[in-house]
Simulated assay, not measured.
Amino acid sequence: MSTLALTARDSATMLRRNLRHLRRYPGMMIMSLGMPVLLLLLFVGVFGGAMQAGVGSGQYIDYVVSGILLMTVGYGASMTALSVNRDMTEGIISRFRTMAIARVSVLTGHVLGAVLRTVVSAALVVLVALLFGFRPAAGAGGWFAAFGVVVLLALALTWLAVAVGLLAKNAEGANLFILVVQVLPFVSSAFVPPDSMSGAVRWFARHEPFTPVIDTLRGALLGTPVGDSGWIAVAWCAGFAVAGYVWARALFRRDPAA
């Protein structure tokens, strides 16, 4: 059997392991599925009326769904950081290092599991949004583009989350990643246009990594022009994915006694 086939087999085994863990830690699945829906209901049902003035024409739910989808990816990646850190601190990672398996498969199993959870969670968010009045204008190409952006962002943030989980000494350290992915979307185009913000906050919101991703998602779903946001979003996601992958591989290979 070739090296690639062995790696694929071991990765599939690690994916099954991570999916089975959902039965042991149902709170993780509830968190990654339920929190984005709760945020959607909160911003549409509670803040929607006040936020509507900031977005101009159109329904606020049409504007905010893309930001909620980004936060859905962030929550899924955050759960992965905690899961990897638990494996690291409980010694499972050390055992895997000694086994005759493809080392990258341990990390790939976490990443693939997180991407699958994220896709399910994102689909649930869209379904609930449709029930509450979300009316996308996307054709088949738009839906395909939105799906691609979600998957690419999930890969990028999850590889970073895996690296953070390996690096952190405990769950509190891994929570730093959760803080970042929870705060940055609020200072972006997720909930209100950056032009409605002031001074330095406006500049930051226009140039931070999440804004072009959200704008690309919004354009794909609503059928509006994406402009430069598309290639900028892909560049940010690709850069994060490569950086996270290289960082995670280096951390996984390091001497645990060092």
Rank of each mutant, 00 (worst) to 15 (best):
H207K: 02
R86H: 11
V106R: 02
L130W: 04
V149K: 07
L179Q: 12
M51Q: 06
I232Q: 12
T108E: 14
A250Y: 03
W143G: 05
V201L: 14
T7D: 10
G45L: 10
Y75E: 06
S57H: 04
G49T: 09
A102H: 12
R117L: 08
G244K: 03
T158C: 10
V115T: 06
G49H: 04
M88S: 14
G239Y: 03
A12R: 08
F252G: 07
S188F: 02
R117K: 05
D215K: 10
P136V: 10
A248I: 05
L166C: 06
L251P: 01
G148A: 15
A129L: 01
L152C: 12
D228Q: 11
P26T: 08
L41M: 13
R117M: 04
V226K: 02
L167S: 13
T98H: 03
T7V: 01
R95D: 13
C237P: 00
S229P: 01
T98N: 07
G76T: 11
A163M: 05
G27P: 02
Q182T: 15
D62V: 07
A145F: 05
R97C: 06
A137P: 00
F191N: 10
I68M: 05
I61A: 08
S94E: 15
F191E: 10
A77R: 05
R23Y: 08
V187P: 02
V128K: 00
V126K: 01
L131Y: 04
A145Y: 00
T118H: 03
L160K: 02
F132T: 09
L179Y: 12
F240Q: 02
S78A: 15
E90V: 08
R97N: 07
V246W: 09
V181E: 05
F47C: 04
T158H: 07
R206G: 04
I93D: 01
L40Q: 04
E172L: 09
L41G: 02
M29H: 00
L22I: 10
W159D: 04
S196R: 13
A156Y: 06
S121M: 06
L19S: 04
P36Y: 03
S188K: 07
R206Y: 11
V128Y: 01
D215Q: 15
T224V: 13
V192D: 01
L130F: 10
L6G: 09
A145T: 15
L39W: 14
L82M: 14
R16F: 03
A235D: 08
A12E: 01
P194I: 14
A168H: 09
A5R: 14
W231L: 13
L112Y: 09
L124R: 00
A238F: 05
Q182R: 01
S11W: 01
P26N: 09
G244I: 08
L42I: 14
L40P: 08
Y75W: 13
I61N: 04
V120W: 02
A154H: 06
F132Q: 10
H21M: 11
L130M: 14
L42S: 06
